[in-house]
């Protein structure tokens, strides 16, 4: 019962967060100079033609009125239409979700597959060995190279030598898996570099910390071999901070995905949001931000639960 109450409270907070984010984004977007009616008609246009557009989309109503009607519609499950294509936003986002999910999934998986083993290796290695130096170097470089710098470099390099990979040739995975992967490898790699560095560094530090714990000394004193110590004790205990960082990474990823999708012309939700922002297609940005904040809030809740699964102390605290 207590657990249910706790979850309910968490969800309430989550919804409140999403509402606040929506409101902030709504206000921020309307404070941006230039409106949809200018974008759609171009600079050389008459007042009359612009007025037709603002009236058509209710952009001439007061801001609270506009926000409330948007909110009421969303609560009824209606995200409205894109002012540019006049297609339901939900459909447009749904169509693009695949690319973004695939991109972020590939980036997370790559970051974990590369960052975790390297981080563990760097954490376990003696301070003198090159493994640790290498780990530090990769960590520092990867974490300090912005996605867009790396992305621009990669786009340029692969426009000269394609190496079988494509830039801007996105095809849905189930249409042509090979072409899809060829198009997604570069953006996903770009997106994963920061994650690799982040996860590598966190894992390394986390492993280093765990290695000084009493239960590791205890296991060593019992004569357990290093491999089983790592497997039984180090990985489990080192995973907690890594999980936290992985969530932070996931939130950063959504931001990174926007940049990478723009750079590599991956038609995902990020590119959609960005273009909508530039085009002042308010409803689209609004809905996409709602989605993003929902994902982040959900991720945080999932990590909470995962934490409890790994660390019984937290579970105990919650149930008591």
């Amino acid at each position: 019962m207590r657990l249910l109450l706790h979850i309910a409270a968490r969800m309430g907070m989550a919804l409140l967060t999403m509402l606040s984010v929506s409101l902030i984004v709504f206000v921020a977007m309307r404070m941006l100079p230039g409106g949809f009616e200018m974008i759609i008609l171009g600079p050389i246009q008459t007042e009359e033609a612009r007025a037709v557009i603002t009236e058509q989309f209710g952009l001439d109503r007061s801001l609270p009125e506009q926000f409330l009607s948007w909110l009421v519609a969303v609560l009824h499950g209606d995200f409205g239409i894109s002012m540019i294509t006049r297609i339901p936003i939900a459909d447009e986002i749904l169509r693009r979700l695949g690319a973004t999910v695939q991109l972020t999934a590939m980036a997370v998986i790559t970051a974990l597959c590369v960052g975790l083993p390297l981080g563990v290796a760097a954490g376990l290695a003696d301070s003198s060995t090159s493994v640790r130096t290498c780990g530090r170097l990769v960590g520092a470089l990867g974490a300090s190279t912005p996605d867009f710098v790396l992305g621009v470099a990669l786009v340029y390099i692969f426009s000269v030598w394609s190496l079988g990979l494509t830039v801007g040739g996105y095809v849905p995975f189930f249409e042509d898996p090979l072409a899809n992967l060829r198009a997604m490898i570069l953006p996903a790699s770009t997106l994963s570099v920061f994650g690799i560095a982040l996860i590598l560094r966190t894992t390394r530090e986390s492993v280093l910390t765990v290695m000084t714990e009493g239960y590791i000394t205890g296991a060593v004193a019992r004569g357990d071999d290093p491999a089983s110590i790592v497997r039984r004790h180090v990985l489990r205990n080192a995973s907690l901070p890594v999980m936290t960082v992985a969530t932070i990474y996931l939130s950063l990823l959504l931001g990174g995905a926007v940049i990478v999708e723009i750079l590599f012309t991956v038609p995902g939700v990020g590119l959609y949001t960005w273009n909508a922002l530039l085009n002042r297609d308010y409803g689209v940005t609004q809905s996409a931000v709602l989605l993003f904040s929902g994902v982040i809030v959900t991720c945080n809740m999932l990590v909470d639960i995962a934490y409890a699964l790994v660390d019984p102390r937290i579970r105990g605290r919650r149930q008591q």
């Binding site: 714990e213 009493g214 239960y215 000394t217 205890g218 004193a221 019992r222 039984r232 489990r236 019984p312």
Partner: peptide, 15 residues
């Protein structure tokens, strides 16, 4: 067989 100073630290909290 070894027994160390702090028993809480000597036990893996996740097991």
């Amino acid at each position: 067989g070894f027994v160390f100073q702090s028993p809480m630290a000597a036990l893996d909290p996740t097991m």
